[in-house]
């Protein structure tokens, strides 16, 4: 394996792992439900995407086919993350979860 591929794979792995961790820290640390929604939809999706990309590079550097299923999973996650965030936000508005006091504006009545 060429040293360039090795650097790229290692960098992507650490980048991906770090972003997944940041997403989870956001989920654990942010003050109310709506702010917590931001961590998983962005940071975690990017983190998993980076890990997928490193897997694609790793297996093509090992001389196997280009991993189309990795790309398929990444595209699927990118398409579904906003949909589930939206559904959860609607459910939260229906239940009327508490929002942070400093939040400007109001959620809609459901």
């Amino acid at each position: 394996m060429s040293p360039f591929a090795e650097y790229a794979i290692s960098a992507l792995l650490i980048f991906g792992g770090a972003f997944t961790l940041v997403g989870a820290i956001g989920l654990a640390r942010l003050p109310d439900f709506y702010t917590r929604l931001h961590g998983p939809t962005k940071a975690t999706t990017v983190g998993v995407g980076a890990i997928m990309l490193s897997s694609v590079i790793y297996f093509s550097a090992m001389g196997e086919d280009i991993g189309i299923s990795e790309i398929l999973i990444t595209v699927f996650l990118l398409m579904t993350a906003p949909v589930s965030a939206n559904m959860l936000a609607k459910a939260a508005m229906h239940i009327g979860v508490n929002t942070l006091e400093s939040t400007k504006g109001n959620p809609w009545e459901q």
Binding site: F33, G47, M52, A92
Partner: peptide, 26 residues
């Protein structure tokens, strides 16, 4: 503390499980 929080946690958990599976594969 609310149900949507728990569902969101499970949602993130399965995405992390996917990441772990890919890492295991490598």
């Amino acid at each position: 503390p609310d149900e949507p929080d728990r569902v969101l946690a499970i949602d993130t958990l399965y995405i992390n499980a996917i990441a772990l599976i890919i890492l295991l594969g490598i």
